[in-house]
Design a binder for these strands. Structure first.
Length: 632
DNA sequence: CCCCCCCC
């Protein structure tokens, strides 16, 4: 421990204007961390926590930030207060006229060490010695020139001019390639920067038309090793830049406007975004060696439950199931194709992720690949779900350590694991099978009524879902099933040559009966009319509709008996309530999404009664009997 | 200056 040697003097060299910056950059100094403090970004759902650290060389100390890709070193306890580190890679820039070191890569030499020396602040704030300048951003009026950024030089303002003259000589034409700024250091307070960034995503050109006017635009996501930022070009700038900026390529970009990103719209992890303007300079960079293709901040699938709905996150998982291509009709009558993937990971959780449009149509990986997703949206369907944005990134079998680890784990037996689906219900394992049914969110019919009358949601626009346990009181006997087209399920009509489907424009010898059920249900608080279709009917009647209709045609009395047997049966229903209009009258329609027979062990588990010790014991016993009944 | 990103 005692043989650790800090790189004395490095802090002063970092703030010394006359230093050779390249030498300082490459010196890989050994330093001690004096403090680690989490800094949470204000607002926004996609903001990643950051760590501010203070580093010391034993004589002086400096403020620094950890690049977010190093967050896990702190989160997992590998590094902390008084750790000795070797800074292998960093960048330094001016923020509020103070230098801020961003540590991009480091080695931990000693995790725990006593404090070395009595270091002083290498960069005391003029005036009071506190860090007020940093905490109170001065408004930059015209009278207060913004500080000149500096990453490749650590000169202060006077030598800066000298430095820029030197650069002018080496790079007369084109952009100032020496003065590369980290994306993470960009802010509206800086000008004269150049970033070197990869386009990781480029949107199509979109047009808009509203009361404020019309126009066109496109977005890109730009990334370097410190962070990412969204750039937007409007109108003329679209013509100028759309073809120039290609997805996957790296560019020098300067003279764009840095502005606050509106947090309700951002899907990219940055407080700011870039507005491309007429004078914005974009030049392709062919040396792409030093830039990673993508930077992730993975959340384990088990951790999705800690994220709020609509949060944006990165995940990596093995695609265990690939759903069929389907389509949905969105609110505005748009039809969109979709495909659901089921991801699993080492946390033994699974989650469904929806691909849209082209990505859904073109997905064809059938060999359970590892797939990394960046910037996907967290939903709460069935507990937790994920959905792609157009700005999200999907990378199949990425060449990154996390992917290799996951592959190894999966192939070495992880694929045999049973995965827990996200669910709010008490019984997580059951939650997966129930898919959307949340026992802990069960409501009485009265509570459903109250919820519906108090909701601010426009029920004609957006349906509300609920689960309730109720007993069937009555089923309308007439039209309990309809003759359906075996191909498209539409109603068919009997004609001289068989059963005619108008949609498929053909006739069938026999129809396929499908249930269409209107039933009165009740619980101890209320009654309601539910409507159910084929899946619901098969559960309620314990037989396909064809069979029930067979009985009806052969023996009316027996049919009446079957109908009667359903009365008094209790089920767990999951329903979708929507406001619909018939003949200018609006009414709420309760569509049954799912019917589940009761499972008495689980019903008890979820109840208050189960909290008593005696009941817990009995329930455990019941579970054991259920599991091992055959053996006992 | 956009801001849609959907459905069960």
């Amino acid at each position: 421990m005692s043989n650790v040697q800090l790189t004395a003097g490095i802090c002063l060299r970092l703030v010394d204007s006359s230093e050779n910056y390249d030498e300082v950059l490459n010196s890989k100094p050994t330093m001690q961390i004096l403090s680690v403090k989490k800094v949470s970004s204000p607002g926004g759902l996609n903001q990643v926590d950051r760590y501010r650290i203070i580093v010391s060389d034993g004589e002086h100390f400096l403020q620094a930030m950890l690049a977010t890709q190093l967050n896990n070193l702190v989160d997992e306890g590998h590094v902390g207060k008084y750790s000795i580190i070797r800074v292998d890679k960093f960048t330094c820039n001016l923020v509020q006229e103070r230098r801020l070191l961003i540590v991009l890569d480091m080695q931990i030499l000693v995790k725990n060490h006593e404090k070395i020396g009595k270091p002083d602040n290498a960069q005391p704030t003029p005036g009071d010695g506190a860090s007020s300048a940093q905490q109170t951003p001065a408004p930059h009026s015209a009278a207060t020139p913004a500080p000149v950024p500096s990453t490749s030089t650590i000169s202060t303002s006077a030598p800066q001019q000298q430095h820029q003259q030197q650069q002018g000589q080496s790079n007369r034409a084109g952009l100032n390639r020496q003065n590369i700024f980290p994306i993470e250091g960009l802010s509206p307070y800086q000008n004269n920067w150049t970033i070197k960034a990869r386009v990781t995503n480029k949107s199509d050109v979109r047009t808009w038309s509203n009361q404020r006017g019309e126009g066109k635009l496109f977005n890109v996501t730009l990334m370097d090793e410190t962070g990412e930022i969204r750039g937007t070009a409007f109108n003329n700038a679209v013509d100028e830049l759309y073809d120039k900026l290609e997805e996957g390529k790296v560019y020098y970009i300067s003279k764009a406007k840095v502005q606050l990103a509106k947090k309700q719209f951002t899907t990219v992890s940055n407080e700011y975004e870039l507005g491309f303007e007429r004078h914005t300079e974009v030049e392709e960079c062919r040396d792409t060696q030093s830039l990673p293709t993508i930077r992730y901040n993975f959340v384990p699938l088990s951790g999705l439950q800690d994220l709020v709905k609509d949060a944006i996150c990165d995940v990596i998982g093995v695609v265990k199931e690939v759903g069929e291509l389907g389509s949905i009709n969105s609110k505005f009558g748009k039809t969109v194709t979709k495909r659901e993937l089921t991801l699993v990971d080492k946390s033994n959780f699974s989650v469904r992720l929806t691909l849209w449009g082209k990505q859904a149509e073109q997905y064809s990986e059938m060999n359970e690949p590892v797939v990394a997703f960046k910037g996907v949206k967290v939903g709460d369907f069935g507990g937790r779900s994920l959905s792609m944005f157009s700005s999200s990134m999907m990378t199949i079998n990425p060449d990154i350590p996390e992917a290799h680890a996951l592959r190894g784990w999966y192939d070495a037996g992880g694929n045999q694991a049973s995965f827990q689906a996200h669910s709010n219900s008490f019984s997580g394992a059951a939650g997966g099978a129930l898919s959307g049914f949340n026992r802990s969110e069960m409501k009485s019919l009265q509570e459903v009524n109250d919820m519906l009358s108090n909701t601010t949601t426009d029920l004609s626009e957006k349906p509300v879902y609920f689960s309730a346990r109720a007993t069937i009181m009555h089923i309308k006997q007439e039209n309990v099933a309809y003759p359906a087209c075996p191909t498209c399920n539409k109603k068919v009509f009997e004609q001289h040559d068989g059963w005619r489907c108008e949609k498929c424009e053909r006739s069938y010898e026999k129809p396929e009966y499908r249930y269409i059920i209107t039933m009165a249900v009740a619980d101890h608080t209320q009654q309601a009319w539910f409507q159910g279709f084929n899946e619901a009917g098969e559960v309620i009647f314990h037989r396909p509709a064809n069979k029930l209709m067979e009985i009806k045609f052969e023996d009316e009395t027996k049919f009446g008996k079957v109908m009667e047997e359903t009365i008094g049966q209790q089920f767990n229903f999951t329903c979708r309530v929507k406001q619909e209009t018939y003949n200018e009258a609006t009414k709420l329609r309760y569509g049954v999404q799912k019917v589940l027979p009761l499972n008495y062990v689980e019903e008890l588990w979820g109840s208050e009664l189960a909290r008593t010790p005696i009941c817990t014991s009995v329930l455990l016993l019941l579970c054991l009997i259920e599991c091992f009944g055959d053996v006992l």
